[in-house]
Amino acid sequence: MTVALTRPFTGRLGSTSRSRPRTGVAVAVAFLLLALAAAAVPGLFAGDPLAADPLRVLEAPSAAHWFGTDQLGRDVFDRVVHGARHSLSIGVAATGISVGAGLLLGLLAGLTHRYADEALSRGFDALSAFPLVLLALLFIAVAGVGTTSLIVAIGLAMMPHYARVVRAQTFVVRRAAYVTHAVAFGGSRIRLVLRHVLPNVLGPVPVLAMIGLGESIMIAAGLSFLGLGPQPPSPEWGAMISEGRGYLHVAWWASILPGAVVTAVVIALTVTGRRLQRRFEGREAA
């Protein structure tokens, strides 16, 4: 008779528990698609975000008002749906700026002369010395309050992160044996960079950008919460949370439900991004 031995040591179960169920990713992707749709055609999902009804002020969530109403009697759900356009486009634009600039400067540092790298790297270091929010604050102090300066501020503040990752990745790839090896086929330096270095450096960037997008959205919400973004009555998520804060003791929904949507978007981005990241690494590592 074969008797099973107890499992001799109960360490972690390899990487089993690290892989989250696929359903989570599916829900995340579906939610992101919905959010995108809301940003594209908000009218399809919700009514007028500015329609105030003085008779229905600060009403709790109900079948008629899923997320309740705010202090002016506006439907919070309608505002959240319309806010998607503001908040998502701010995040996407800021991420676009930071990824674009980071990519350019990171490659410049990684591929050109040693002194250029030294100068740029010190620059990135110095910029990273500023906390993101403070850097954005400084920029807004100079450029004035407004949506555009909010976007540029976040884009600038997050740029060093991407630049450093790209630079480091460039160095890793440049030193990789397969790049050294390509010398054996007598290709020129430019050919080497185009065929081996660039594709391997660029590969992970979209996924990083996706995870970074979540962070941009959070910082944007934070800054507009401080009143440094789109101004009322614009239904931007951070601004909504800020407006609703004054009524927290009577109507938590006006502030917390828009906030929950921000969290959900960021979680969905992170979950999807990590999943893609794992798949990306999986192709190389498994």
Binding site: G214, M218, A221, G222, F225, G238, I241, R245, L248, H249, W252, S255, I256, G259, V262, T263, V266, I267, T270, V271
Partner: peptide, 22 residues
Amino acid sequence: ELIVVSTPPFLIGIVLLSVFSF
């Protein structure tokens, strides 16, 4: 952890305020 990391800090503050203070 994922939820906490994905929530804007000020929102965490607001939630804590409304639960524990209000």
